[in-house]
Amino acid sequence: MRAGMMNASLDAVLVVTLLAVALFSVLARQARAAVIGFIAFGLLLALAWVRLGAVDVALTEAAIGALTAPLLLGASAFAGTEKPASPPLRLALAALCALIAGTLAVIVLAAPEPAPSLAMQAVAPLGALDLGNAVTAVLLAYRALDTLLETVVVLLALIGIWSLAHDENWRDAPASPAAPSPPLDLLARVLPPVGLVVAMHLLWVGADAPGGKFQAATLIAAMGLLLMMAGLTPPPALGDARLRALVVAGPAVFLAIGLAGFLFPGSFLAYPDGWAKPLIIVIEMALTVSIALMLLLMLLGPGARKPSA
């Protein structure tokens, strides 16, 4: 009972802080303050995911939040000076949004009891797939099509970013994010080996425990960014054929295995009996490399003119 009270008050504190930080981010006068509020919000949201029993999601949220932070902080320099809406309009908008939030709240509170759940159906075939983590099974077996389309969406976003370069620069390396300093240099020499080991661990245990390719890929991308920010590695030229091959390798392998499912056992993205686990591992490995690279290249941005040395 006491533990129940503890958990309830923990949830209450977490929810209040989460909403306070979100409110601060929306209402802050300075763009930079809004960005910092949003970064804090992302960290608290990861905690909320743990409280909701979704550790896989919490890991993804925390890792993606860490990648979003430098992107947003960099963009806060480009914040426009556009004035927000006039006070009467803002009041009307607030009323409208409160109405929408209230309607949603009524729906949430009137949710059917017992809640519909696919947990039983998701757990039943785990033995045949030789997987222990039901979330990984959903991502790579039952709903593999979602994951395939998602990697294609990420690839399209990367192509979109690349297409923002000037015509004469689009094969060149992106502008270097390097801002070397002695502490950053030390960090960039000490942290990446540890980060890579943790990423491989997350990837490997993802079959049976929280973790998986997204979390591992995000971590690898963060390590790559750290190396480039410390100035230890220059950003790669975007026209490089090997780089582009690595970027498309993941989706291509996934698609090839999916198409092979047509031959045997007879439908798209179906795995032959007994081959599910090895095929899932191959897909996860290939996707980890591609997603890590795509996330890193997205953060670096389009090709830019080389600084005149």
């Binding site: 929810v15 763009a31 949430v108």
Partner: peptide
């Protein structure tokens, strides 16, 4: 606990929608 987070989600949706509509600066 779940419905508490559910209500928080509703407030976040309202707050986010307000921000999208009320702010004119793209980053916001």
């Amino acid at each position: 606990g779940a419905s508490l987070f559910g209500l928080a989600a509703c407030v976040l949706i309202g707050l986010g929608l307000y921000g999208v509509l009320a702010h004119a600066a793209p980053l916001r």
